[in-house]
Nucleic acid binder design. Structure first.
Lengths: 128, 128
DNA sequence: CTAGTTGCAAAGAGTTTGCATGGCG
DNA sequence: CGCCATGCAAACTCTTTGCAACTAG
């Protein structure tokens, strides 16, 4: 838990809030805010504990992608990630609810934050 | 693409077919079949290209888990992973179809192989 | 002033690669 | 016998940790 309100933390928060719901590596963030990677990792972890940031494995899977959640609303969305263009989008809430309800009746409680649906988005021709 | 039918490949295949749909790290497999990790990685990659093996990031996410798909049937299932006990199960086919159809009508084509739903299974109290 | 933070460099962890040896066909 | 595959160790990549210097309160 953060005790001091440091410059680096303020700048990190400022940067992230300009890029809500965007997937970025720790390195990218580190370059953008011009801070050491270690501080970025440490502060991202704090934000993750506060529920403001989540991480998901990058497609191939060597590294993690971090995502800043602007609001409660966003935190509770199921995210879908396009394997072609890499963009993330929110699952329609009705669809999400239907899915969770169906699985719940089988006894499986979905973790909305951790789950990511992979596929191909409309723009990349997912419907063909 | 495999050119020779070596002992190691035969033993790896034999071991995997005794553990269908089970999530294992490369290290675990390496120990079980008593082969070098490098060979295991190389041969798992071949099997992945043949569509017989998939990989998914391990929960926390430092390493990959490999899963041998015994049949076409299994290859086409959406997998659900319990964050508590780590077990994997197949999503009920009706549920899976409903989900894919709902997303498809939004233009998003689900990749059944890559997608893993995280949550808590019945045995671990997911329904509470 | 004191304890939390930072940056650097080194350590870790898992995976990949180069190379000499060994085995399949 | 020729080429592919294996095992070992070294290289890599991303992340974490130890430590001394720095800074917020």
């Amino acid at each position: 838990m953060a005790k001091y309100n440091t410059n680096q933390r303020r700048e990190l928060a400022a940067f992230l809030s300009q890029h809500p719901d965007e997937l970025m590596t720790a390195q990218e963030i580190s370059e953008q805010v011009d801070q050491s990677v270690s501080s970025v990792y440490r502060n991202l972890e704090l934000l993750e504990n506060e529920g403001k940031v989540t991480r998901q494995p990058k497609d191939g899977c060597r590294e993690m992608l971090f995502r800043y959640m602007a609001s409660e609303h966003c935190a509770d969305m199921i995210h879908m990630c396009c394997s072609e263009c890499g963009r993330t989008m929110h699952m329609d809430e009705n669809t999400a609810k239907t899915l969770c309800d169906m699985l719940s009746s089988d006894g499986f409680g979905v973790d909305r934050t951790k789950t990511v649906i992979y596929g191909v988005c409309r723009d990349c021709g997912g419907n063909r």
